[in-house]
Amino acid sequence: MDSLVVLVLCLSCLLLLSLWRQSSGRGKLPPGPTPLPVIGNILQIGIKDISKSLTNLSKVYGPVFTLYFGLKPIVVLHGYEAVKEALIDLGEEFSGRGIFPLAERANRGFGIVFSNGKKWKEIRRFSLMTLRNFGMGKRSIEDRVQEEARCLVEELRKTKASPCDPTFILGCAPCNVICSIIFHKRFDYKDQQFLNLMEKLNENIKILSSPWIQICNNFSPIIDYFPGTHNKLLKNVAFMKSYILEKVKEHQESMDMNNPQDFIDCFLMKMEKEKHNQPSEFTIESLENTAVDLFGAGTETTSTTLRYALLLLLKHPEVTAKVQEEIERVIGRNRSPCMQDRSHMPYTDAVVHEVQRYIDLLPTSLPHAVTCDIKFRNYLIPKGTTILISLTSVLHDNKEFPNPEMFDPHHFLDEGGNFKKSKYFMPFSAGKRICVGEALAGMELFLFLTSILQNFNLKSLVDPKNLDTTPVVNGFASVPPFYQLCFIPV
């Protein structure tokens, strides 16, 4: 009986604490739906499609509103004006990374994606500088992407125009580009180590996009005490870190300090320079996690976009025909596509942009946080508050993009057929937390897609009208449904 009384008292205290925290903070924060004790607004949000729920709530509470995930307040920004004001106009104040408990377990605050403060700034600055020195957006990395595009075309030829699921092959190409940047090595598509790495990356994007992960991140005790797919994700990350550590040891034994070959060499050189400046942010643990982040951000996002792009091109054969006509006119058949071609191919450029806009790969991006107490639109948001960005509300804005739910390359073309930029184009987020590999991803999408369409016609196994382009999961990332196609050599 005594234990029951204690339990009831504990629960009562928890409920009172929950109510007090919510009521004391709500006077400062933007308005929002009334949260339930302990669980907050979790029942009012469709976990399978958070973005749709945010759109519905914005119609009631406006472009800036507050939700509670458990006891934790989260300020939501919906629509271009609110997102721009926060991420661009007040970029420094909104540059923090929001709480992501599962990532905390995986990387302990290291790396480039989930770190904060001085650690994040130094690692991000170093990573950007190193990638630029190796030619991100310049010639040397373009050579690597072109080489991988040629290998991709050869792998597709091996399908002999038979029906195939493109998931694996389209994942190999961007993964190999990242391998060449980090390890100075590309792998054969049949290499077992490479296959294991690909498998872990593919599993992780599916797990991260599941409703279960949303629950884990908002009720963090689940991570330590409950079984579930989150444990598989943590094991996959541990596998990748151990693999990278092996490569780091190989580099330490063979590195030429006067001739760095890749990202690992550059990081080890930085560690050597910083060894007298303790404590340094440049450690082996930081290198492991930064490399894992580059793999995660640079492989599955690009391969998922490529997979979605081919599905949309199957669905819209008239678009595919126009792209192939432009390829034939500008590039021809006797040389590989290059980035200089893009400025002469406005329709193809528009298609690449429209694919990214339409699929809305990361509907709410990753959570941000404010780095200080900030007054925002007459609300006071306390330091450390998590900020949720609705990228969907920007990419699918119906004023900027008429009929935003329709796939239409003319969203990025003017009346004369010239490519038209849009400030609403934010597939990689915006501001200080914009994806480090934005330029690389854009290069890969253009070169891989043009190389495929230069060499193959795409054949659907069903009537294009019957192809479903609805994402199968739409949590962290929008993942396309399973499909097969035939690559018919031109």
Rank of each mutant, 00 (worst) to 15 (best):
S3Q: 11
V5M: 14
L7D: 06
L11T: 14
C13K: 13
L17V: 14
R21K: 13
Q22P: 14
S24A: 13
S24H: 13
S24V: 13
G27R: 14
G27L: 13
G27H: 13
K28T: 13
P33F: 02
L36G: 04
G40M: 01
G40I: 03
N41F: 03
N41P: 04
L43Y: 09
I45S: 06
I45D: 05
I47N: 14
I50T: 10
I50S: 09
K52Y: 08
S53T: 12
S53D: 10
S53Q: 13
L54Y: 06
L54C: 11
N56M: 09
G62S: 03
V64P: 02
Y68R: 07
F69H: 08
K72I: 03
P73L: 03
I74T: 09
V75H: 00
V76C: 12
L77E: 00
E81W: 07
E81P: 10
E81K: 10
A86I: 06
A86P: 02
L90V: 13
L90S: 15
S95D: 09
E104L: 10
E104F: 15
G109Q: 06
G111Q: 02
I112W: 08
E122S: 12
E122T: 11
I123L: 10
I123M: 15
R124T: 05
M129H: 12
M129D: 06
M129Y: 11
L131N: 05
L131R: 04
R132G: 06
N133E: 12
M136D: 09
M136W: 08
K138F: 11
R139F: 11
S140G: 09
A149P: 00
A149Q: 01
C151S: 07
V153H: 01
A161R: 06
F168M: 07
A173T: 01
I182G: 00
K185Y: 03
R186D: 02
D188Q: 06
F194T: 01
L195Y: 04
L197T: 01
K200T: 06
K200I: 08
E203T: 07
N204P: 00
K206Y: 02
I215A: 07
S220M: 13
P221R: 13
Y225H: 10
H230T: 10
L233P: 06
F239P: 03
K241E: 05
I244A: 05
S254V: 13
M255A: 10
D256S: 10
N258T: 12
N259R: 10
P260C: 09
C266I: 07
T283S: 09
S286T: 10
S286Q: 15
L287D: 00
L287I: 05
A297H: 00
G298C: 07
E300L: 15
L306I: 12
Y308M: 08
L311C: 04
L311I: 06
L312H: 06
L314E: 00
A321P: 05
V323R: 02
V330H: 12
R333Y: 10
N334P: 05
N334A: 11
S336C: 13
Q340G: 12
V352P: 00
Q356L: 11
Y358D: 01
I359R: 04
P363M: 04
S365W: 00
L366Q: 11
V370G: 04
T371M: 07
K375N: 09
R377E: 07
N378P: 03
Y379N: 04
P382V: 03
G384V: 00
I387S: 03
I387E: 01
L388E: 02
I389C: 13
S390P: 05
S390E: 06
T392G: 13
N398A: 14
F407P: 00
D408I: 03
L413I: 08
N418H: 12
F419A: 05
S422T: 12
M426P: 01
S429Q: 03
R433N: 00
C435F: 00
C435Q: 00
G437S: 05
L445M: 09
L445Q: 09
L447S: 04
L447N: 02
T450F: 00
T450V: 14
S451A: 14
N455Q: 10
F456Y: 06
N457H: 15
L458A: 01
K459R: 12
D463A: 08
D463S: 09
P464G: 04
P464E: 07
P464T: 07
P464V: 10
N466A: 14
N466K: 12
L467M: 06
D468V: 11
T469H: 06
T470W: 04
V473R: 14
N474I: 05
G475H: 06
G475E: 05
V479S: 14
Y483A: 01
Y483R: 01
Q484G: 03
Q484T: 08
L485K: 00
F487M: 01
I488V: 15
I488H: 08
P489K: 01
P489Q: 02
